[in-house]
Simulated scan of single mutants.
Amino acid sequence: MFFFFMNPAEMPVFSAGLRKLERSLDLLRSVDPGMPIGAAAALIRIGRQMPQLATGQETLKSIGAQMEVPYSSFLRHTDLLSEGAPGTKALRLIEKGIHPEDRRARQVRLTPDGLNLLLNLDSICSEQ
Rank of each mutant, 00 (worst) to 15 (best):
M67L: 15
R106L: 05
L80A: 06
L75M: 15
A105M: 14
E95S: 14
L93W: 12
L110H: 08
H77C: 10
Y71P: 00
Q66A: 13
V69L: 13
P112L: 10
P70C: 07
L75T: 04
P100T: 00
R92I: 04
V69P: 03
R76N: 11
S73A: 15
P70S: 06
E83C: 11
L81K: 08
E101N: 08
V69A: 11
P70V: 12
V69D: 00
R76Q: 12
R76A: 09
L93V: 01
Q66T: 10
E95Y: 13
E68F: 10
V69Y: 00
D79W: 02
F74H: 05
L81E: 08
Q107P: 09
Y71N: 06
T111E: 12
K96H: 01
P86T: 05
S73V: 13
L118E: 01
D113G: 08
D79I: 09
L117V: 07
L118N: 07
G97P: 10
L110A: 02
E68S: 10
E68M: 10
A105C: 09
H77D: 12
G87D: 00
L118Y: 09
T88E: 00
A65E: 14
R92W: 04
V69G: 05
L110I: 00
L117C: 03
V108K: 06
Y71A: 07
G97N: 05
S73T: 14
R104Y: 15
L80W: 02
E68D: 10
F74R: 10
I94N: 12
L110E: 02
E95H: 15
L115V: 01
E83I: 09
L91H: 03
M67Y: 07
L115N: 12
I98W: 09
R104G: 11
A90M: 03
S73E: 12
D102L: 05
K89L: 04
R103H: 15
E101C: 08
G84C: 02
S73H: 12
R106M: 03
L118G: 06
E101D: 10
V108W: 04
L115W: 13
I94H: 08
L110T: 02
L80G: 04
R104M: 04
R103G: 13
G84K: 09
H99Y: 02
H99S: 05
L115P: 04
R109A: 09
L81T: 01
F74P: 09
R92H: 13
E95F: 11
L93I: 00
L81N: 05
L118K: 05
R76C: 07
G97W: 00
